[in-house]
Design a protein around this nucleic acid. Structure first.
Length: 576
DNA sequence: ATATGATGATACC
DNA sequence: TGGTATCCCTCATA
């Protein structure tokens, strides 16, 4: 029906009517939530009196002579701009645009609501192919390493309850987390572990500084922030393997720093922008980093595809930089094999992960190139034997290669999992559980949300990569932000999560206590940074509120408010 | 309540 | 090959 007719019906003695048609993306679909279909077109009379579109309403000398303006807003899908449907949140449930490929598995024909991977993560997981060829190294592996691997797979321990948290610790999102390599053993309390993480800052050169935060979560209030280690976002950190009181960090300012954790005084190991800013084509940014204790090296990679080796002691570059990924593309990850020190794994924006031999390192000399559908966010050797490879790619798949000595043409398994790239989020990285003797348990945050009792939450997933099964999805109703950074403790059953600017420490639920008691348990949370701008240089005294101000303005409160029907407590979640 | 903005990969010319 | 328009479940703040 043409809109004119309906408009005329509304005003029997019509003044001059001007139509202003406007397409709205309806960003806030939660305000119209409730499940009832909205009318596709809405009409509203702008102002009570007659006005003309385009005329200055306020300046209106002629306000009484002006005709009525009717604004017609045609509701269009904000994703595809089509009509007849709308993408966005309805309460805590996200409705996908049906015209786009599935947001989870990227295949057309269905949405995430009906995607088979959403129901069962292991759907479509290809079993590991049987290997027909064996190399001498395979026999070495069987004889020397296999006996150390227990035959019976132990039950996975999942830290699924928040123990403590620092809210808004950093001024920008967290990019990485690291546990202290030994501190929990050295200190007698047995509880004294340090967490180091960093924050990015803006990419502007003389703007804010890359920060380094240290938190002793055994002593909840003890935390330090070092603010002037880098001038740009801090991308990576590694403890110095020969001196654990010092830490290496790499940054988009093009430097590697070695920082003394007691004093916070950094010393520059390498500076790739010694002459300052000469345009984006010349500014080097460092992303991937790892240490090689056997060779005394720090390895870093830049945004132009190059790898650099630096002698940690003499601070001299070891040889020239080597092109390890497509020229001009970012190398985002480096990992040295924990068992075979000469093997290096790199990954980058050219959609490849590559295995290198440090003894024969030159452009194009990689041992293997592992192809991916999109950018590879991370690539890690398995932590105990170093024989498996785990990668996270922006094509929403986690891949595992079961043996670096086998056929690497195809991954042994691919698991579809939602961890899309979003420029506002730290890229997701699937991380091994360093304590799992079977080297199959992996932790990674989830991008898409699930409706849990009327609250949209983004769980942290524990996946058994040997089967593709989702072992656990961990969430907390107060954490409504996405948690892209996750690290499992090397010795304890502890998970550290970086979500936006906050850090959470998770421990397993106590098996002896009843479930209800544990659910009701509140954890200690400390807020930081509320008044950070007012008192530069150090943190304010923290208030001991559990989560009060964290909940405010959160998606949770929005979801709860907009929920038209009363929340059905037993509804649990939409996923079955 | 709603608007705004920070900013990386990619597709396409 | 380079420049730019586009982006889809962000998040915090004004």
């Amino acid at each position: 029906m043409p809109p004119q007719k309906r408009a005329t019906r509304r005003s029997p003695t019509p003044p001059r009517v001007v139509f202003a048609e406007e397409e709205t993306g309806s960003d806030d679909s939660s305000s119209t939530s409730g499940g009832e279909e909205e009318e596709e077109e809405e009409e509203e009379v702008v102002g009570g009196d007659a006005v003309t579109v385009g005329e200055d309403i306020n300046g209106g000398k002629s306000i009484h002579e002006a005709p009525v303006s009717i604004k017609i807003t045609r509701r269009v899908c904000k994703v595809c701009k089509g009509t007849g449907h709308e993408a966005g949140f309805r309460g805590a449930t996200y409705i996908d645009c049906p015209k786009k490929p599935c947001f989870l598995c990227k295949l057309p024909g269905h949405t995430t609501m009906t995607c088979p991977h959403r129901v069962a993560m292991e759907h479509g997981v290809v079993p590991a192919p049987r290997r027909h060829s064996r190399t001498p190294l395979d026999y070495v592996f069987e004889r020397q390493l296999r006996p150390e691997i227990p035959k019976i797979k132990p039950a996975f321990v999942v830290p699924d309850q928040v123990d403590c948290a620092i809210i808004k610790f950093h001024s920008r999102r967290i990019t990485c987390l690291e546990f202290h390599p030994t501190k929990n053993n050295v200190v007698l309390s047995g509880d004294k572990i340090k967490i180091l993480f960093d924050i990015p800052c803006f990419f502007l050169l003389d703007s804010k500084k890359g920060q380094l935060g240290i938190w002793d979560y055994g002593m909840l209030h003890e935390k330090i922030v070092y603010r002037s280690i880098h001038s740009c976002i801090l991308n990576n950190m590694k403890f110095n393997p020969v001196n654990e009181d010092t830490l290496f960090t790499s940054s988009s300012d093009g430097t590697i720093c070695c920082t003394d954790l007691e004093t916070g005084i950094p010393s520059i190991l390498m500076d790739l922008n010694p002459d300052g800013w000469h345009g984006p084509a010349n500014w080097v940014m460092l992303y991937g980093m790892d240490t090689n204790i056997e060779r005394g090296l720090v390895l870093v990679a830049d945004n132009f595809g190059h790898l650099y080796l630096v002698d940690a002691r003499t601070r001299m570059r070891s040889g020239q930089s080597i092109l390890v990924h497509k020229k001009g593309t970012k190398v985002v990850g480096l990992h040295c094999n924990p068992v075979h020190p000469d093997l290096l794994l790199s990954c980058g924006n050219d959609h490849f992960a590559r295995i290198w031999d440090l003894r024969r390192l030159e452009a194009g000399s990689c041992l293997e190139s592992l192809a991916h559908g999109r950018v590879v966010n991370s690539a890690y050797f398995s932590p105990l034997t170093g024989t498996k490879i785990l990668t996270t790619s922006q094509d929403n798949r986690i891949r595992v290669w079961d043996s670096i000595f086998g056929n690497l043409e195809r991954p042994s398994r691919e698991v579809v999992h939602s961890h899309d790239f979003n420029r506002h989020l730290t890229p997701f990285k699937a991380e091994w559980d360093p304590k799992d003797p079977s080297e199959s348990l992996v932790v990674i945050g989830r991008y898409i949300s699930e409706n849990y009792n009327g609250v949209a939450l983004h769980p942290i997933d524990f996946i058994d990569m040997s089967t593709g099964q989702l072992v656990a999805e961990v969430m907390e109703s107060n954490i409504t932000t996405i948690s892209p950074v996750n690290k499992l403790h090397p010795r304890d059953d502890i998970l550290a999560t970086g979500s936006s600017r906050s850090i959470f420490i998770w421990r397993p639920k106590e098996a002896s206590k009843p479930e209800e008691e544990q659910q009701g348990k509140r954890f200690k949370a400390f807020t930081c940074g509320k008044n950070e701008k007012k008192s530069k240089g150090k943190f304010d005294d923290e208030s001991d509120d559990d989560f009060g101000d964290f909940i405010r303005n959160s998606k949770r409160s929005r979801a709860l408010k907009s929920e038209r029907k009363p929340t059905q407590a037993k509804q649990s979640k939409s996923r079955t």
